[in-house]
């Protein structure tokens, strides 16, 4: 084995891959969240569809997309490999185990949280990404020449977010994501050895804020559409204006 494979199959090496991919995926979450804010513009999805068309066709984005696939792939694979290793490290368990006295639940259950996120991800990909990329979406149509030939992903979003169990799945997945990030963000820095008495507390609180903002941001989308839009995607008068305001800023 070369030193490279040795490094990255060692316990710390695998953790480093987890950390690097995890932090990379955090940047993806930021981009994804900001892009999706277009959903909140009161324009019947015009901005959102333009954005999704851009994301689906821009060569740079398409290249980065492969990075994303690798990022997810490695993150999931390493998680599996590490979990297997960690299970083997204790084959005989304890009769009594009170880890809740010494650590946070979320830190101990990253695997479960990650699995929930993975299931969500598959459903999510099938539902939007697959249809957007490989067809099956109607065109926007209408009079506006800038958007009428685009795929109407917005309507697909509206449709999906009027199915109650679908909304529920989304919200649960986002809670899982929030907890996953709650631990994962600072853990990523710790694994890379980026630790300093001055900055580590900052990283910790930035991580907490990141987890809350990202998960709440994503969860707000299905809830918003479920509660405040009709099946045609028209926004009710009582819809909170805050999200619109934020979206308009981007």
């Amino acid at each position: 084995m070369s030193w490279i494979t040795k490094t990255f199959t060692s316990s710390i090496g695998r953790k480093i891959i987890m950390s690097l991919t995890g932090l990379f995926l955090c940047t993806f979450l930021v981009v994804h969240l900001i892009g999706n804010l277009q959903l909140f513009k009161h324009d019947q999805g015009a901005a959102f569809n333009t954005y999704s068309h851009f994301m689906g066709t821009n060569p740079v984005i398409r290249t980065i997309e492969w990075g994303l696939v690798l990022g997810f792939g490695f993150h999931i694979f390493e998680a599996w490999a590490l979990t297997r290793r960690n299970k083997a490290a204790r084959t005989q368990g304890y009769a009594q185990w009170h880890a809740e006295k010494n650590s946070e639940w979320t830190s101990r259950n990253m695997g479960i949280l990650g699995t929930i996120i993975l299931i969500f991800l598959l459903v999510h990909l099938y539902n939007f990404f697959w249809r957007a990329r490989f067809g099956g979406l109607p065109k926007v149509g209408g009079a506006n020449p800038e958007v009428r030939d685009l795929d109407n992903l917005y309507l697909a979003v509206v449709d999906s977010f009027h199915v109650w169990w679908y909304v529920l799945l989304y919200v649960l997945a986002q809670i899982s994501l929030g907890y996953h990030l709650w631990h994962g963000f600072r853990s990523g820095f710790q694994t890379l050895g980026l630790n300093h008495r001055k900055y580590t507390p900052l990283i910790k609180y930035v991580g907490y804020a990141f987890a809350v903002v990202v998960s709440a941001g994503f969860a707000s989308m299905p809830l918003y559409f479920f509660l405040f839009t009709n099946p045609q995607g028209e926004i009710a008068a009582n819809a909170p204006s805050l999200l619109h305001t934020i979206a308009s800023a981007f």
């Binding site: 316990s11 010494n102 694994t191």
Partner: peptide, 13 residues
Amino acid sequence: DKEGFGACSNIGS
């Protein structure tokens, strides 16, 4: 690693 210890996942226990 050879001894078969698990990997750290920064739990803090």
